[in-house]
Simulated scan of single mutants.
Amino acid sequence: MEVREIMTPNPICCMPNTSLETVARAMVRHDCGEIPVVENEESMRLIGVITDRDIVCRTIAQGKDPMGMTARECMSTPAVTVTPETRLEDCCQVMEDYRIRRVPVADQNGCCCGMVSQADIARRAPTEQAAEVLKEVSQPRNTAEPAMA
């Protein structure tokens, strides 16, 4: 099975100059915890990701006011990605290796074309594989710094 078979296509994206307030509202509206950051609407070239955890750890936890900040100021970059042709097993390994719950999908031009989440894997992958991803991604970190995406 390839990533293209389980990914959520055409995820909501933001640009580096998008306000954190707009990013957070998009997360609520689209019920997601990570939004890909793209260079611009025309190219859709992926340059990073911003998570709900990035916003909390890189703003509020540091005493900064998120209301005047942009995605560029707290996004994780470069983004860890997979391609639509990536085998599901390899995608799971990437998520385990980086301990990330979601991974953006970039095409051969580096354009964001999808997103794979733990939920996508839980719904479509074999039970053992889904359990392994959940277990490995949930391991505690050795640092207080937020993970890459």
Rank of each mutant, 00 (worst) to 15 (best):
Q93T: 13
V28I: 14
E42G: 02
V103Q: 00
R25Y: 12
M1D: 05
E145H: 10
Q139R: 15
A147V: 12
V137D: 02
R101L: 07
N17T: 12
Q93F: 12
T83K: 05
E136I: 09
I55L: 12
H30Y: 15
A79S: 11
I60Y: 14
A122S: 13
E136P: 00
E132I: 08
M67L: 14
E42Q: 12
E73M: 13
V82S: 01
D65R: 01
E136H: 12
I50W: 01
T77G: 06
P11F: 04
V137K: 11
A149W: 09
T70W: 03
A79H: 02
P104L: 05
P66R: 03
T70L: 05
A147L: 11
P9G: 10
T86S: 12
A149L: 13
C14I: 14
G114S: 11
M15C: 07
I35W: 00
C14L: 08
T70P: 00
C113D: 03
D31T: 10
L88E: 04
P36R: 07
E145D: 15
V56N: 03
L88P: 00
L20I: 13
R29L: 13
E89L: 11
I55Q: 00
N17M: 11
R72I: 02
T18P: 00
V80Y: 06
A147P: 09
R141N: 14
V49L: 04
V133P: 01
K135C: 10
R45M: 09
R102F: 05
S138T: 13
Q93V: 07
I35M: 06
P11L: 08
V37D: 05
I121N: 01
T8F: 06
N40Q: 09
R45C: 07
A125L: 03
R123Q: 15
V103N: 02
R72C: 08
I60F: 15
D31E: 15
V133C: 04
S43M: 07
Q62N: 11
M1L: 08
M27N: 04
V3D: 06
A131Q: 14
C32K: 04
C111P: 00
M7V: 11
M67Y: 10
C91E: 02
Y98L: 02
A119K: 10
D90W: 03
C113Q: 03
T86E: 08
C91N: 00
